[in-house]
Write a protein that binds this DNA or RNA. Structure first.
Lengths: 220, 220
DNA sequence: CGTACCTTGAACCGGCCGGTTCAAATATTT
DNA sequence: AAATATTTGAACCGGCCGGTTCAAGGTACG
């Protein structure tokens, strides 16, 4: 008899749970920041977009800066999980490495060019000088974690003689570079959607090069 | 009429030439935008930084938006030239391709991580959704031009059987990706300076991989 | 010297924004 | 249902900002 909420949606405003409301605010904040930029966003608009009163925001999340920080932290968890799950195929590669690498590459690219992820990088890049700790944290739980996890996968593959490298950190870094590097121009810095077919082509090219550099040497 | 105040024959180091002043404003604007972001910058501060009165800015450059556009366009010319000149070593490679590629890679990286270039990319990325034409123009005269020029160089090398590829666009794209991709994390999105030794190491790794993928096949 | 153009500083304007206050309305707990 | 906590809308405040105006100097040039 405590957590009983969610009465039928009447004609009036629907009541949301506390956690729900906080999430709604953070999502609205992220959308607004992503659309207008941090400096050009105003709290009133965020409140409107979250269907919430302005004082509510200040009550629950303090000032605009912490609102920004929290919205960014919430967004990165979303996207990082998706990137990590993209590494799954590397856990069970077939007799040929290529399909697993291509599948992983394609899924990494999809996660990389999705709306939310692009906006996150844009905002982070824009405000990085003003929020250095935020940058540090987001890179740690985002890109760095993915790169480390990929290095782990590659290490197991190298151990099983499926790859040829002594420096899995480097291999991981370069695999990601081959994937995401080309997207900067192709996606116009994240402002233009990229067709899945194009992603697949970039992933294939990346895997080609990666395998030529790190693929198993044919025994002579 | 008599539109003759600062004839093109200027260039005197007088108190301040008219053309000089415009440049001073644009440079001050770029510094300020880079430091505070577009939305958080105010014209008054730009005027102070340029040692110029506020109305002078509005007289000569219109409103804040065009000021931003002009400052960005001026900055990209600066940096793109430097990147293009980095391709020079590829014009006269020795008997081994590696040194020329490494020198080019290192110089590209130096240009890529320099203060001005990083700030330019940060600002462009931040405001890309609000200034789509600016994004288009800067990418055209910036990154795209470098990638095309590099593809030209690679084409000549491939023709001379110094490289093995049928798709120089792809090779160019991947070479640049191998160079700049790793810098995102290492330079903390352009907010942290990177030691020259680290640049050299990244360039070497990039060339290693590039040559394994595109290097001349050993005959026999 | 005179004139015609700029630049300068300062003041000004309208407007928006971050953040707070407050009383009324709503939701939640007991 | 009474009591308590929260939300809401609206108004408010101080302040800054983009952009303009204006009078008082420069400065170049005939």
């Amino acid at each position: 008899m405590s957590r009983a909420k969610t009465p039928e949606a009447g004609g009036r405003g629907e009541p949301r749970g506390h956690a729900d409301k906080r999430r709604a605010i953070l999502e609205a904040a992220f959308r607004t920041f992503a659309r207008d930029g941090y400096g050009q966003s105003c709290v009133r608009e965020i409140a409107d977009e979250a269907a919430v009163a302005k004082p509510t925001i200040y009550n629950r999340l303090g000032d605009k800066e912490t609102l920004f920080r929290e919205a960014m932290k919430a967004a990165v968890e979303h996207t990082a999980d998706r990137s990590l799950s993209a590494l799954e195929p590397l856990r069970t590669p077939g007799d040929d490495m290529r399909p697993a690498l291509e599948e992983t590459g394609l899924r990494l690219l999809r996660s990389h060019v999705c709306q939310e992820s692009q906006a996150l990088r844009r905002l982070l890049s824009a405000e990085a000088p003003r929020f250095p700790e935020l940058l540090e944290e987001i890179q740690r739980v985002g890109a760095q974690r993915v790169q480390d996890a990929l290095a782990d996968r590659l290490a197991r593959l190298a151990l099983a003689k499926r790859l040829e490298t002594t420096d899995v950190e480097r291999a991981s870094e370069q695999f990601l570079a081959l994937l995401t590097g080309p997207m900067e121009l192709r996606s116009a810095l994240g402002t233009r959607p990229v067709a899945d077919e194009e992603l697949r082509s970039v992933a294939e090219a990346a895997v080609d090069t990666f395998l030529l550099a790190y693929g198993p040497r044919d025994p002579g």
